[in-house]
Design a protein around this nucleic acid. Sequence first.
DNA 1: CCGTCCTCCTGGCCGC
DNA 2: TGCGGCCAGGAGGACG
Length: 274
Amino acid sequence: MPELPEVEQVRCSLLPHIKNEKICNVEIRLPRMVVHPTVPEFIAGVEGQVITDVRRKGKYLMLLLNNGQYILAHLRMTGAMLICPHDGKEPPFAKIRFVLANGKDMWFTDIRTFGTMSLCGGNDVWQDKGFAALGPEPLSPGFTEANLREKLKKSHQMVKCFILDQHKIAGMGNIYADEALAAAGIRPTRYSDALTKKQVHVLYEAINQVIAQGLRNHGTTFRNYQDADGLMGNNKDYLLVYGRKGQPCTKCGTLLRKIKVAGRGSVYCPHCQK
DNA sequence: CCGTCCTCCTGGCCGC
DNA sequence: TGCGGCCAGGAGGACG
């Protein structure tokens, strides 16, 4: 599942293939993945444009176009952006094809088809609600311990839910949420407003640490995630708890337990996480 | 405001 | 070997 580090890796790996490249042609195989504007408007608005840059906010990718608009993409669960030669075999689960002037195709592939694309900006006032309401992301100047403490104090919900809420912190998904809580020694079911100042401090550091580590390792590949060159991330080898249900905790050896929090599987160490 | 459940969807895995 | 059932979960919405 692409979270902040994975989307960042996709951004970095896409950039050298598509920056300053013209989009000659767009082919949409699954129309409902284009959420705005209409499919014909999307195609008309994108074809002939040059991609001037690729940015990322939270888990969203922005492909900036030279007319001032941008393609906003969200990979959700199984989406990927793959670069392939134009005359080669098309990748599995291909949903949207961007034919570039340099002889490469950029494919939006998606197994479960939860991914979305839209064309925004310029004179179009439409906004993606989730994108517009993103909170600060880890490792950014806007993400401060004081701000986190303030928000946690105001929120009476389980801390796992808090961390997954993109309005509060942008870019954390199930993997990095579980990892941050494990690194911080906090149970996913603890209430946000019940955390001590010390716990908030440790959690703040842990969130930044697990995201930094994910970035360093080019993301976590568990099932489907790959970057634009089809490469996997290495961070799976460094996970403390995610995907390790029933295995011993790396710190104390206690067997890791899995529960459901807000419908999400949550793995934690019953001994280390208080 | 909050938690729970449901929806979208398909590949992979488990048990029978 | 096959097949039904369940699981994976990002995000938004219904509901209590």
